[in-house]
Protein backbone atom coordinates (compact mmCIF):
# COMPACT_ATOMS: atom_id res chain seq x y z
CA UNK A 1 0.00 0.00 0.00
CA UNK A 2 1.20 3.50 -0.87
CA UNK A 3 0.12 6.78 0.68
CA UNK A 4 0.66 10.36 -0.44
CA UNK A 5 0.65 12.56 2.67
CA UNK A 6 -0.30 16.21 2.29
CA UNK A 7 1.83 18.34 4.62
CA UNK A 8 0.99 21.84 5.85
CA UNK A 9 2.85 25.09 5.87
CA UNK A 10 1.48 28.37 7.25
CA UNK A 11 2.76 31.86 7.91
CA UNK A 12 6.25 30.88 6.83
CA UNK A 13 6.46 27.68 8.86
CA UNK A 14 6.18 23.95 8.32
CA UNK A 15 3.41 22.86 10.70
CA UNK A 16 4.26 20.18 13.25
CA UNK A 17 0.86 18.55 12.75
CA UNK A 18 2.28 17.30 9.43
CA UNK A 19 3.99 14.53 11.40
CA UNK A 20 0.61 13.14 12.51
CA UNK A 21 0.19 11.98 8.90
CA UNK A 22 3.19 9.68 9.38
CA UNK A 23 1.55 8.31 12.54
CA UNK A 24 -1.49 7.40 10.48
CA UNK A 25 0.55 5.86 7.64
CA UNK A 26 2.52 3.86 10.20
CA UNK A 27 -0.66 2.39 11.67
CA UNK A 28 -1.84 1.57 8.19
CA UNK A 29 1.49 -0.13 7.49
CA UNK A 30 1.80 1.83 4.25
CA UNK A 31 4.69 3.29 2.27
CA UNK A 32 4.81 7.07 2.23
CA UNK A 33 5.58 10.02 0.03
CA UNK A 34 5.04 13.60 1.16
CA UNK A 35 3.55 16.57 -0.69
CA UNK A 36 4.19 20.11 0.49
CA UNK A 37 3.78 23.62 -0.77
CA UNK A 38 6.69 25.04 1.19
CA UNK A 39 10.31 25.97 0.79
CA UNK A 40 13.59 24.06 0.49
CA UNK A 41 15.05 26.17 3.29
CA UNK A 42 12.68 24.47 5.75
CA UNK A 43 12.49 20.77 4.99
CA UNK A 44 10.66 18.15 7.03
CA UNK A 45 12.67 15.53 8.93
CA UNK A 46 11.81 12.79 6.46
CA UNK A 47 14.03 10.63 4.29
CA UNK A 48 11.50 9.68 1.58
CA UNK A 49 10.23 11.36 -1.57
CA UNK A 50 9.04 14.93 -1.11
CA UNK A 51 6.95 16.53 -3.85
CA UNK A 52 7.71 20.17 -3.24
CA UNK A 53 6.15 23.26 -4.77
CA UNK A 54 7.52 26.69 -3.98
CA UNK A 55 5.24 28.61 -1.62
CA UNK A 56 6.71 31.93 -2.82
CA UNK A 57 5.21 31.21 -6.25
CA UNK A 58 2.12 29.20 -5.31
CA UNK A 59 0.96 31.01 -2.16
CA UNK A 60 -0.14 29.48 1.14
CA UNK A 61 -3.86 29.55 0.34
CA UNK A 62 -4.61 29.06 -3.30
CA UNK A 63 -6.85 25.99 -3.43
CA UNK A 64 -7.24 25.68 -7.20
CA UNK A 65 -3.48 25.82 -7.71
CA UNK A 66 -2.70 23.50 -4.81
CA UNK A 67 -5.27 21.05 -6.17
CA UNK A 68 -3.49 20.96 -9.55
CA UNK A 69 -0.15 20.38 -7.80
CA UNK A 70 -1.53 17.53 -5.65
CA UNK A 71 -3.03 15.96 -8.78
CA UNK A 72 0.36 16.13 -10.49
CA UNK A 73 2.03 14.41 -7.53
CA UNK A 74 -0.70 11.75 -7.57
CA UNK A 75 -0.05 11.11 -11.25
CA UNK A 76 3.66 10.57 -10.55
CA UNK A 77 3.24 8.57 -7.35
CA UNK A 78 0.00 6.66 -8.01
CA UNK A 79 -0.85 6.25 -4.31
CA UNK A 80 -3.68 4.14 -2.88
CA UNK A 81 -4.56 6.79 -0.31
CA UNK A 82 -4.11 10.54 -0.37
CA UNK A 83 -4.05 11.65 3.25
CA UNK A 84 -4.80 15.14 4.61
CA UNK A 85 -5.23 16.49 8.12
CA UNK A 86 -8.82 17.40 8.92
CA UNK A 87 -7.77 21.04 9.36
CA UNK A 88 -8.82 24.28 7.71
CA UNK A 89 -6.32 23.48 4.92
CA UNK A 90 -7.30 19.81 4.65
CA UNK A 91 -11.08 20.02 4.69
CA UNK A 92 -10.87 22.80 2.10
CA UNK A 93 -8.52 21.01 -0.29
CA UNK A 94 -9.35 17.30 0.13
CA UNK A 95 -12.84 17.36 -1.46
CA UNK A 96 -11.44 19.27 -4.45
CA UNK A 97 -8.88 16.52 -5.04
CA UNK A 98 -11.40 13.72 -4.42
CA UNK A 99 -13.90 15.29 -6.82
CA UNK A 100 -11.29 15.78 -9.54
CA UNK A 101 -10.33 12.10 -9.30
CA UNK A 102 -13.92 11.04 -8.65
CA UNK A 103 -12.85 8.85 -5.75
CA UNK A 104 -14.30 8.30 -2.27
CA UNK A 105 -13.38 10.64 0.55
CA UNK A 106 -13.55 9.62 4.20
CA UNK A 107 -13.49 12.64 6.52
CA UNK A 108 -12.05 13.04 10.00
CA UNK A 109 -10.86 9.49 10.60
CA UNK A 110 -10.23 8.69 14.27
CA UNK A 111 -9.12 5.06 13.91
CA UNK A 112 -8.25 2.39 11.39
CA UNK A 113 -10.41 -0.69 11.64
CA UNK A 114 -10.64 -3.97 9.91
CA UNK A 115 -12.94 -3.35 6.99
CA UNK A 116 -12.69 0.42 6.99
CA UNK A 117 -12.07 3.70 8.75
CA UNK A 118 -13.83 4.83 11.90
CA UNK A 119 -15.18 8.39 12.02
CA UNK A 120 -17.23 10.31 14.57
CA UNK A 121 -20.81 11.39 13.92
CA UNK A 122 -23.79 12.95 15.69
CA UNK A 123 -21.58 15.56 17.37
CA UNK A 124 -19.05 12.90 18.45
CA UNK A 125 -21.66 10.89 20.34
CA UNK A 126 -21.58 7.99 17.88
CA UNK A 127 -19.18 6.43 15.38
CA UNK A 128 -19.44 5.10 11.84
CA UNK A 129 -17.18 2.73 9.97
CA UNK A 130 -16.80 3.74 6.33
CA UNK A 131 -15.33 1.90 3.42
CA UNK A 132 -14.30 3.48 0.11
CA UNK A 133 -15.67 1.67 -2.96
CA UNK A 134 -13.03 3.17 -5.25
CA UNK A 135 -9.49 1.82 -5.67
CA UNK A 136 -7.94 5.14 -4.73
CA UNK A 137 -9.32 7.16 -1.84
CA UNK A 138 -8.90 10.49 -0.08
CA UNK A 139 -8.69 10.48 3.72
CA UNK A 140 -8.66 13.31 6.24
CA UNK A 141 -7.53 12.45 9.78
CA UNK A 142 -8.79 14.05 12.97
CA UNK A 143 -6.32 16.42 14.63
CA UNK A 144 -4.63 14.63 17.52
CA UNK A 145 -6.12 11.21 16.75
CA UNK A 146 -2.81 9.81 15.48
CA UNK A 147 0.40 10.43 17.38
CA UNK A 148 2.98 12.50 15.48
CA UNK A 149 6.02 10.55 14.23
CA UNK A 150 9.19 12.21 12.91
CA UNK A 151 10.71 9.71 10.47
CA UNK A 152 14.03 11.62 10.34
CA UNK A 153 16.42 11.97 7.41
CA UNK A 154 16.66 14.31 4.45
CA UNK A 155 14.09 14.07 1.65
CA UNK A 156 14.63 13.34 -2.01
CA UNK A 157 12.98 16.32 -3.59
CA UNK A 158 10.82 16.21 -6.69
CA UNK A 159 10.01 19.79 -7.65
CA UNK A 160 6.54 20.64 -8.89
CA UNK A 161 5.86 23.76 -10.91
CA UNK A 162 2.46 25.44 -10.82
CA UNK A 163 0.23 25.23 -13.84
CA UNK A 164 -2.90 27.31 -14.32
CA UNK A 165 -4.28 30.22 -12.36
CA UNK A 166 -6.09 30.54 -9.08
CA UNK A 167 -9.76 31.56 -8.94
CA UNK A 168 -9.39 32.69 -5.34
CA UNK A 169 -7.19 35.67 -4.53
CA UNK A 170 -5.57 35.46 -1.10
CA UNK A 171 -5.30 38.87 0.54
CA UNK A 172 -3.48 37.93 3.75
CA UNK A 173 -3.88 36.94 7.37
CA UNK A 174 -5.62 38.61 10.24
CA UNK A 175 -4.01 37.89 13.61
CA UNK A 176 -5.96 36.34 16.48
CA UNK A 177 -7.67 38.84 18.78
CA UNK A 178 -5.70 40.20 21.71
CA UNK A 179 -6.15 38.16 24.84
CA UNK A 180 -7.59 40.03 27.80
CA UNK A 181 -7.47 36.90 29.95
CA UNK A 182 -4.58 34.48 29.72
CA UNK A 183 -6.32 31.23 30.52
CA UNK A 184 -3.11 29.26 29.91
CA UNK A 185 -1.82 30.53 33.27
CA UNK A 186 -4.97 29.72 35.27
CA UNK A 187 -4.84 26.84 37.74
CA UNK A 188 -8.59 26.47 37.87
CA UNK A 189 -11.00 27.13 35.02
CA UNK A 190 -14.78 26.87 35.21
CA UNK A 191 -16.33 26.94 31.75
CA UNK A 192 -19.84 27.72 30.59
CA UNK A 193 -21.36 25.82 27.65
CA UNK A 194 -24.58 26.25 25.72
CA UNK A 195 -26.25 24.14 28.41
CA UNK A 196 -26.44 27.26 30.61
CA UNK A 197 -29.40 28.18 28.41
CA UNK A 198 -29.21 31.98 28.45
CA UNK A 199 -26.90 34.91 29.01
CA UNK A 200 -28.34 35.62 32.46
CA UNK A 201 -26.95 32.31 33.69
CA UNK A 202 -23.31 33.21 32.97
CA UNK A 203 -23.35 34.69 36.48
CA UNK A 204 -23.97 31.24 38.01
CA UNK A 205 -20.86 29.86 36.34
CA UNK A 206 -18.78 32.97 37.07
CA UNK A 207 -19.78 32.65 40.74
CA UNK A 208 -18.47 29.07 40.86
CA UNK A 209 -15.23 30.19 39.18
CA UNK A 210 -14.89 32.87 41.85
CA UNK A 211 -15.63 30.44 44.68
CA UNK A 212 -12.81 28.23 43.38
CA UNK A 213 -10.53 31.24 42.92
CA UNK A 214 -10.31 30.45 39.21
CA UNK A 215 -11.06 31.96 35.81
CA UNK A 216 -14.17 31.80 33.66
CA UNK A 217 -13.90 29.83 30.42
CA UNK A 218 -16.49 29.19 27.72
CA UNK A 219 -17.35 27.01 24.76
CA UNK A 220 -17.79 28.54 21.35
CA UNK A 221 -21.59 28.90 21.14
CA UNK A 222 -21.49 30.96 24.34
CA UNK A 223 -18.93 33.25 22.71
CA UNK A 224 -20.71 33.34 19.32
CA UNK A 225 -23.91 34.40 21.10
CA UNK A 226 -21.87 37.17 22.77
CA UNK A 227 -22.73 35.98 26.29
CA UNK A 228 -18.99 35.96 27.07
CA UNK A 229 -16.10 37.64 25.22
CA UNK A 230 -13.87 35.68 22.84
CA UNK A 231 -10.81 35.73 25.08
CA UNK A 232 -12.57 33.24 27.37
CA UNK A 233 -13.05 30.66 24.61
CA UNK A 234 -11.38 27.29 25.05
CA UNK A 235 -10.71 25.08 22.02
CA UNK A 236 -9.07 24.87 18.62
CA UNK A 237 -10.15 28.37 17.71
CA UNK A 238 -9.74 29.70 21.24
CA UNK A 239 -7.13 28.98 23.90
CA UNK A 240 -5.45 25.71 24.82
CA UNK A 241 -5.38 25.19 28.57
CA UNK A 242 -4.11 22.63 31.06
CA UNK A 243 -5.18 23.77 34.55
CA UNK A 244 -5.11 21.65 37.70
CA UNK A 245 -8.91 21.62 37.61
CA UNK A 246 -11.22 22.16 34.64
CA UNK A 247 -14.95 22.30 35.30
CA UNK A 248 -17.14 21.95 32.19
CA UNK A 249 -20.70 23.11 32.83
CA UNK A 250 -23.24 22.25 30.12
CA UNK A 251 -20.57 21.43 27.53
CA UNK A 252 -21.19 18.43 25.28
CA UNK A 253 -17.52 17.69 24.51
CA UNK A 254 -17.11 18.33 20.77
CA UNK A 255 -13.61 17.51 19.51
CA UNK A 256 -12.80 21.17 18.92
CA UNK A 257 -13.52 21.91 22.58
CA UNK A 258 -11.69 18.82 23.86
CA UNK A 259 -8.62 19.76 21.84
CA UNK A 260 -8.29 22.85 24.02
CA UNK A 261 -8.74 21.29 27.47
CA UNK A 262 -8.21 17.54 27.51
CA UNK A 263 -4.71 17.89 28.96
CA UNK A 264 -6.15 19.40 32.15
CA UNK A 265 -5.00 17.51 35.24
CA UNK A 266 -8.50 16.90 36.57
CA UNK A 267 -11.75 17.33 34.66
CA UNK A 268 -15.12 17.67 36.33
CA UNK A 269 -18.11 17.79 33.99
CA UNK A 270 -21.67 18.69 34.81
CA UNK A 271 -24.15 17.57 32.20
CA UNK A 272 -27.72 16.38 32.25
CA UNK A 273 -26.90 13.94 29.43
CA UNK A 274 -25.14 10.83 30.71
CA UNK A 275 -23.97 9.99 27.16
CA UNK A 276 -22.41 13.38 26.41
CA UNK A 277 -18.94 12.81 24.86
CA UNK A 278 -17.36 15.02 27.54
CA UNK A 279 -17.64 11.82 29.61
CA UNK A 280 -14.81 10.35 27.54
CA UNK A 281 -12.29 12.76 29.05
CA UNK A 282 -13.92 13.66 32.39
CA UNK A 283 -12.53 12.23 35.62
CA UNK A 284 -15.93 12.84 37.14
CA UNK A 285 -19.19 13.35 35.25
CA UNK A 286 -21.99 14.68 37.42
CA UNK A 287 -25.29 13.90 35.76
CA UNK A 288 -27.47 16.79 36.90
CA UNK A 289 -29.16 20.02 35.92
CA UNK A 290 -26.38 22.58 36.21
CA UNK A 291 -28.88 25.25 37.28
CA UNK A 292 -29.37 23.27 40.48
CA UNK A 293 -25.98 21.66 40.97
CA UNK A 294 -23.69 24.61 40.25
CA UNK A 295 -25.24 27.07 42.74
CA UNK A 296 -25.29 24.30 45.37
CA UNK A 297 -21.59 23.59 44.82
CA UNK A 298 -20.80 27.32 44.93
CA UNK A 299 -22.69 27.68 48.22
CA UNK A 300 -20.85 24.71 49.73
CA UNK A 301 -17.44 26.08 48.66
CA UNK A 302 -18.24 29.49 50.08
CA UNK A 303 -19.09 28.08 53.52
Amino acid sequence: MKTLLIGEYRQGKLLDTTYELFGFAGQLGAETALFLVGTDSQLPAYGGTLYLADVAVCGEYSPELHKQLVLEAIKKENPDQIVFLHSSYGWDLAPRVAASLKVAQVSEVVAIQEGGYEVGCCNAKMRRTLKPATAQSVITIQAGAFEGVQPGGAPQIVKLAPAGASNVEFLGYEPAEEKGVDLAKAEIIVSAGRGIGKKDNVGIIAALAKAFGGELGASRPVVDAEWVSHDHQVGTTGQTVSPKLYVACGISGAIQHLAGMKKSEFILAINKDKDAPIGEVADVLVVADLLQFVPALTARLSQ
Binding site: Q105, G116, M126, R127, L130, S137, L285
Partner: peptide
Protein backbone atom coordinates in the same frame (compact mmCIF):
# COMPACT_ATOMS: atom_id res chain seq x y z
CA UNK B 1 -18.20 6.09 -4.15
CA UNK B 2 -18.13 4.68 -0.63
CA UNK B 3 -20.35 2.92 1.84
CA UNK B 4 -21.15 2.81 5.54
CA UNK B 5 -20.32 -0.52 7.14
CA UNK B 6 -21.64 0.23 10.61
CA UNK B 7 -23.06 2.81 13.02
CA UNK B 8 -22.17 2.24 16.66
CA UNK B 9 -21.39 3.96 19.96
CA UNK B 10 -17.73 4.77 20.69
CA UNK B 11 -15.77 2.08 22.50
CA UNK B 12 -15.87 3.45 26.06
CA UNK B 13 -12.50 5.08 26.60
CA UNK B 14 -13.77 7.09 29.54
CA UNK B 15 -12.49 5.65 32.79
CA UNK B 16 -14.11 8.45 34.72
CA UNK B 17 -16.66 8.22 37.46
CA UNK B 18 -20.29 8.90 36.69
Amino acid sequence: LGKTVSFHPPAKKGSGLI
